[in-house]
C-alpha cells in the first residue's frame, strides 16, 4: 500500500447510509424490515448509545456491522468502517476485520466464553488470530490485559476455567479479549444487562476508562436509559427498525424532541416521584398492541 492510497484521516469510524435489514422466513409471509433506512455516523472517540425496546432492531444493526447476521438476513445500504465498505464483503475479509479493527461484546459474558478453555488463552487467541506473535508473547500481553481490566493476580488466574470466576470478572475477561488488538471501534450489545447493579456501574466505568486511554470509539446498545445516561456522549433512539432521533445525551434527557422518546423517558422508574404509580409507555407505542404494519406507519409518520 503506497501512502497515496491512504484515505486522508477518515473522519468517521463508522458510517451507516440508508441501512436496511430484512429476514427471510420459511412461510413466505411478508415481514417488515428489522432495520429500516438507518443513516448515522459515529465520531472518533465518542461513546454512542443506541436505546430502544427489544425488537427495535438495535442489535440487528450492530450485528450487521460485524457481518454476524444469520444467513436468512439481507442487508442493503452501506456500512463504512474506517471508510471501508462492509456490506457484501466475503467472510475472509470480514474475519480479518473482526476482533482487530472492530470488536463486539455481548450481553451474557458467562455464555460468551468457551467453558473448556482457560480464560487467559481466550484473550491470547484473539491476538494470535490477527498478529504473528509467539505463544509466550501472546500470553504476556493477555496477562497484562487482564491486569488492565482489573483482574487481581492476573498471572495466577490466567489458567482458570471461566466457571471459577465471578460474573463481573468474566465480563472483564470478555472486554479484555475484545480489546486485545486495540480496535478502533467497540460494539457493546447490552454489556451489563446480565450483571448486578453495582458490578454494572464498574463495567461501564471500565469501558469509559478504556475508551479514554485507547481512544476507542464505542457503540453501546442498551434498553436501559440509566446505562445510556451514565456513559454516552450521544444517543440514538430506535423504534420498529427506524432511528427516530439522534441527540447528545444531555439534550435528549433535557429536551427530547420525539414523542416516543418522551414516552420512553417518562417510563423511567428512576424519574418517577415517590408514591406515584410507575409511568409506562403509552399503549399506542407498545409493540404488543400494534400490528407490524401499523407500527411502521406510526414510526415513519413520527419521523416526518
Amino acid at each position: 500500500m503506497s501512502p497515496d492510497d491512504r484515505i486522508e484521516v477518515p473522519a468517521d469510524v463508522l458510517q451507516f447510509t440508508d441501512v436496511s435489514v430484512t429476514f427471510a422466513t420459511d412461510d413466505a409471509s411478508p415481514v417488515g424490515p428489522a432495520v429500516d433506512g438507518v443513516t448515522l455516523a459515529l465520531r472518533r472517540g465518542e461513546i454512542f448509545g443506541i436505546v430502544g425496546e427489544s425488537g427495535s432492531g438495535k442489535s440487528t444493526l450492530a450485528n450487521a456491522v460485524m457481518g454476524l447476521l444469520p444467513g436468512t438476513a439481507t442487508v442493503t445500504g452501506s456500512i463504512l468502517v474506517n471508510g471501508r465498505e462492509v456490506v457484501g464483503q466475503d467472510d475472509a475479509q470480514l474475519r480479518s476485520m473482526r476482533g482487530d479493527e472492530v470488536s463486539m461484546i455481548f450481553q451474557d459474558a458467562s455464555a460468551s466464553l468457551d467453558p473448556t478453555w482457560p480464560v487467559g488463552d481466550q484473550i491470547a487467541e484473539t491476538i494470535r488470530a490477527h498478529r504473528l506473535i509467539d505463544r509466550r508473547e501472546a500470553k504476556a500481553r493477555a496477562t497484562a490485559l487482564m491486569t488492565e481490566v482489573g483482574i487481581p493476580d492476573a498471572a495466577d488466574r490466567y489458567g482458570d476455567a471461566p466457571h471459577r470466576l465471578s460474573g463481573g470478572q468474566r465480563q472483564r475477561i470478555v472486554i479484555a479479549a475484545a480489546l486485545a488488538n486495540d480496535p478502533q471501534l467497540l460494539i457493546a450489545d447490552e454489556p451489563t444487562t446480565a450483571l448486578d447493579v453495582t458490578i454494572q456501574a464498574q463495567v461501564l466505568e471500565l469501558i469509559d476508562r478504556l475508551r479514554t486511554v485507547h481512544g476507542t470509539t464505542v457503540l453501546l446498545i442498551s434498553h436501559d436509559l440509566g446505562v445510556i445516561a451514565q456513559v454516552c456522549d450521544r444517543v440514538g433512539v430506535m423504534y420498529g427498525g427506524v432511528l427516530l432521533e439522534v441527540a447528545t445525551a444531555r439534550e435528549l434527557f433535557r429536551a427530547p424532541k420525539h414523542p416516543y422518546t418522551r414516552a420512553l423517558l417518562a417510563a423511567n422508574p428512576a424519574g418517577a416521584p415517590r408514591g406515584t404509580r410507575l409511568p409506562v409507555i403509552p399503549a399506542a407505542w407498545s409493540i404488543e398492541s400494534l400490528s407490524e404494519a401499523e407500527l411502521l406507519a406510526q414510526a415513519k409518520e413520527a419521523e416526518r
Binding site: D26, D27, L69, P70
Partner: peptide, 12 residues
C-alpha cells in the same frame, strides 16, 4: 455457523 437461529415454524 450463519444459521444462528434455526427458523422452523411449529407448522413445519
Amino acid at each position: 455457523l450463519e444459521r444462528v437461529a434455526p427458523i422452523t415454524t411449529p407448522r413445519a
